[in-house]
Design a binder for these strands. Structure first.
Ligand SMILES: Nc1ccn([C@H]2C[C@H](O)[C@@H](COP(=O)(O)OP(=O)(O)OP(=O)(O)O)O2)c(=O)n1
Ligand SMILES: [Mg+2]
Length: 886
DNA sequence: CTTGGAGCGATTT
DNA sequence: TAAATCGCT
């Protein structure tokens, strides 16, 4: 945004950019002083090719070691290099020590003026005020200057290096006096960093961020550089365009290509109109100004990161090919993320609001660049809930695919806020609907038939995933508000949300209930409610549970948890941390736990109702009901969206059968809608593409594969996202897109077909690399190396996969053999393949082999099969760098 | 395996 | 609002 802003008469500023020298290396050298003065680099994951270098010390740079080398390359250039590996935790690289070191530095550098943390190892400082004050006290004798200041570089003065200190003390122009004064401050700050944190850093001092950053990089390490205004034209004349901040990517390349520019000076000579024609008014103006050394991007007052994220890639054969593995890694990421969130809460009192899960994957083992998507939902703190929510988000993406290969996953927590703003009572968002008195009834917390096998942290819900209620939507012309009525209305009166607008008004019948709802700030409140809430705010499940069953949760400090609440009620909270894992043998207990879940924020969003009680309320006290919006009720937060739980293909992929009934049930009970019009945002093209089928309750919403049309007049309306996400999608007659991509049939499925009839055969299978063969300009040699065919189907499937695996990104590219594939021929006995061999195979093949082994086991020793499955799982989630490499 | 991996912030749609 | 993309360390 700053990029598009400028003001012609901005006050002249003194801005500094300070950048740590080879930062991670310094961190490691401080940890292990043995390394000081020695050629050192930091790598992550060294078993493979020596690991990737992410930081290189200056001693090593002097000997030709470059970033973007691998550890092995580095050692070639510099045999005595010290390679330090990044710490790992939860099976992934853990940058905590570098983050902490960065924070240490920031705490020092933020002393003299506004400070913006720009990355883990750099800050911008706005020293305008401090420099103005300092101007009066700049020494007149250069010998009185700080030693670090004396060593400054000043761009554009003729004998540059020799006489910087005399330049500093003899300025007459205001702008240069300002810079000189700032340079003294910066010198002191850098010295403070050196003394207090024992790190060296370099700095640029100029009138804006762009020039300061440019300068900080000009003399490194442990030096500082000034850029007076007058130096800009000379500096830019020779400066490659890409060196300018923000021009290092495609924009810079397009300027080079389309306008034939090479230097910043070239850019300066392009007329404003031309730039604006090419890149729009704002960008054009920004370019015009940046090329003249003008930049008004302010130094923001922010020393903390605005989000916390962690991610991991699973390249090539390490790609995650089944949901248990995905869930395992989601949990590993959640473990780290949760820890960091707790730390932030403790240290800074900040809480995140939004959880974002990103996943890159392909649906076939092609080398085409993977498809990256992200999904988000309100965050609920705690490893288990982050895991459950994030896994739900990821699964929502993957559940469409018969096969998937996840090459990277990431979680991040954003919208960090210092204080919980939403401290108002929930009732301020609600108003009573007159004349409604509904009977409290048991409501028996819904229990699905499938609770035994869920993984840790997953929410147990019924297969409809909506608390056993199902609804129908109909237009409501008359009233602008909404309410719920029906036999399970519960509580002593009904609330509807306060009206905030006219959109999305309709009446919904939910099972036996009729619901009218409307969008309101309640939704935001609920989102906030998953974070910290004011003390003694209570959310409970009065709606479905009725009187006396509400559970209390002490929210503020998180001191009381769900388990506490359960204990307080005199029940054994057998597995407080793992909702939904209780045995199905005790319905009562399970029901209670489900309620707990609701209280803790999950059902509170999707669930039936939400209740506030007074500060002194005790467990068991009668409480009032509050109805949620339909969105919340159905589960606006995708994470725990249990429609996807219903569609969980996980077991299908593990066991192959017996898991389809829920979907059918869901479809059968989805109601139709009268007079409703909706369309998924931005997906009308898909809706019209003829791929549409129909939506059932297992179908996924909001991700581009469903369309709804008006059954009355065939119209499609835009701007119906609200309905779309909520009620309509749930109940309308919709159409679901079939596979857009020709996904290959699951190999596992083929396996099962193939293996069922006869498989006592002891066989050996061979996997070949088609591309490796074609690269040599010859035909496949597969039949030669194959010794025995296990089964025609299997072999065919295997070849097919292997071809796909090594297929060129563009099938149309006939110009030559693809430069892909490892060229490896795998040879193994599928029944007795040893672990280290297995580890080397592409994950998809591993999975298949395991499936084969399981199947065989199932027939021969059914009892042992379970055990094998467990062992296989453990094996499949082992991080690749813990595996043996050959 | 291949735009080295992990992780930020900002803008655009 | 959510999601994708870009630029960067
Ligand atoms: N692609 C990158 C770039 C940087 N970093 C990390 C490692 C670096 O140590 C740190 C700071 O990045 P810099 O670009 O500032 O590089 P250095 O500080 O290592 O070296 P320099 O002295 O050139 O600033 O961020 C990273 O992980 N991946
Ligand atoms: Mg640095």
């Amino acid at each position: 945004m700053a990029r598009y802003q400028f003001s012609d008469h901005a006050e002249l500023r003194a801005v500094s950019h300070i950048d740590m020298d080879c930062f991670y290396v310094q961190v490691e050298q401080r940890r292990n002083p043995e390394l000081k003065g020695k050629p050192t680099a930091v790598v992550q994951y060294n078993p493979w090719k020596g690991g990737g270098l992410i930081a290189v010390g200056y001693e090593a740079r002097a000997r030709g070691v470059k970033k973007q080398m691998r550890g092995d390359d580095a050692r070639e250039h510099c045999p005595d290099i010290n390679l330090v590996t990044v710490p790992t935790a939860h099976g992934k690289a853990d940058l905590t020590i570098y983050r902490e070191a960065g924070a240490e530095v920031v705490s020092i550098l933020s002393r003299k003026g506004r400070c913006e943390r720009a990355s883990i190892d750099e800050v911008y400082l706005d020293l305008t005020e401090a420099a103005k004050e300092r101007m009066a006290h700049v020494p007149t004798n250069r010998d009185d200057l700080h030693a670090e200041a004396q060593k400054s570089h000043v761009l554009g003065v003729t004998p540059n290096v020799s006489d910087a200190s005399s330049w500093l003390v003899s300025r007459t122009e205001y702008s240069e006096q300002l810079l000189a004064a700032a340079a003294l401050i910066v010198a002191e700050l850098r010295e403070a960093v050196r003394m207090e944190a024992r790190f060296s850093c370099s700095a640029g001092v100029a009138h804006n961020k762009m020039l300061a950053k440019l300068a900080s990089n000009m003399h490194k390490p442990a030096q500082q550089t000034l850029v007076p205004l007058a130096a800009v034209p000379g500096l830019f004349e020779e400066l490659p365009l890409k060196k300018l901040r923000q021009l290092g990517g495609k924009l810079g390349a397009s300027l080079e290509n389309q306008l034939g520019l090479n230097t910043a000076g070239d850019l300066m000579r392009v007329p404003l109109e031309r730039l604006q024609d090419m890149h729009g008014k704002n960008v054009g103006m920004w370019l015009f100004r940046i090329s003249r050394g003008l930049d008004d991007d302010p130094v923001n007052d922010r020393v903390l990161p605005k989000s916390h994220g962690c991610s991991k890639t699973f390249p090539g054969r390490n790609a995650l090919a089944d949901l248990p593995a995905v869930r395992h890694w989601v949990r590993q990421l959640a473990l780290e993320l949760d820890q960091r969130l707790e730390t932030d809460a403790e240290q800074n009192g900040r809480f995140a609001r939004l959880l974002v899960a990103s996943v890159s994957y392909h649906t076939e083992p092609t080398l085409a660049s993977p498809h990256g998507v992200s999904k988000s939902c309100p965050i609920a703190y705690g490893v288990d809930r982050i895991t459950a929510d994030a896994f739900g988000l990821v699964r929502r993406v993957l559940s469409d695919c018969q096969a998937f290969y996840v090459t990277s996953m990431g979680l991040s927590a954003t919208n960090l806020q210092a204080t919980p703003e939403k401290t108002a009572s929930i009732t301020t968002f609600l108003r009573k609907v007159p004349g409604k008195q509904s009977a409290a009834s048991d409501g028996g917390a819904p229990t699905g038939s499938e609770t035994t096998d869920r993984g840790e942290g997953e929410t147990a819900l019924d297969e409809e995933g909506n608390g056993g209620l199902r609804g129908q939507v109909a237009a409501d012309e008359k009233e602008g508000t909404a309410q719920i009525e029906g036999e399970r209305g519960g509580g002593s009166g009904e609330y509807a949300e306060t009206s905030t607008g006219g959109e999305a008004r309709r009446k919904t019948e939910v099972g036996a209930r009729k619901v009218k709802r409307q969008r309101s700030p309640l939704r935001d409140w609920l989102a906030a409610a998953s974070g910290p809430r004011p003390a003694s705010k209570v959310i409970s499940t009065g709606g479905s549970e009725g009187k006396g069953k509400g559970l209390e949760r002490e929210v503020l400090a998180g001191t009381a948890t769900q388990s506490d609440a359960l204990k307080a009620e005199g029940r054994a909270a057998s597995e407080p941390a793992e909702c939904g894992r209780t045995g199905a043998d005790d319905p009562a207990l399970q029901s209670e736990e489900l309620r707990g879940d609701e209280i803790d924020g999950q059902h509170a969003l999707e669930g039936v109702s939400c209740v506030e009680r007074g500060p002194d309320s005790t467990v068991g006290e009668e409480c009032e009901d509050v109805q949620l919006t339909l969105e919340e009720w159905i589960g606006d937060r995708g994470g725990t969206d249990s429609r996807s739980a219903a569609a969980d293909p996980e077991h299908a992929s593990c066991e192959g059968r017996g898991r389809t009934s829920e979907n059918e049930k869901g479809a059968a009970s989805s109601a139709e809608v009268a007079g409703v019009t909706a369309e998924p945002t931005g997906l009308s093209d898909l809706a019209k593409s003829g791929h549409a089928d129909r939506l059932d309750l297992g179908g996924e919403l909001g991700e581009g594969n469903v369309a709804i049309e008006d059954r009355n007049n065939g119209e499609e309306k835009a701007d119906s996202g609200f309905e779309w996400k909520g009620a309509l999608a749930e109940t309308a007659t919709a159409r679901q897109v079939r596979n857009r991509v020709e996904a290959p049939k699951s190999l596992e499925a083929l396996w099962q077909k193939a293996a069922v009839p006869k498989t006592d055969v002891q066989s050996e299978r061979t996997v070949e690399d088609q591309a490796g063969a074609s690269r040599e300009g010859r035909r496949s040699t597969q039949s030669k190396t194959r010794k025995r065919s296990l089964d025609g189907h299997v072999a065919d499937a295997k070849e097919k996969l292997q071809k796909l695996w090594s297929k060129a990104p563009s099938a149309k590219d006939e110009t030559g053999p693809a430069e892909v594939g490892s060229g490896i021929t795998y040879e193994f006995d599928w029944q007795e393949v040893d672990q280290s061999t297995l580890d080397e195979l592409p994950l998809a093949i591993q999975a298949e082999i395991r499936a084969a082994q399981r199947l065989q086991m199932q027939r021969q020793q059914p009892k042992a099969a379970k055990k094998l499955e467990k062992a296989q799982h453990a094996q499949s989630i082992k991080p690749f760098f813990q595996r043996k490499s050959r």
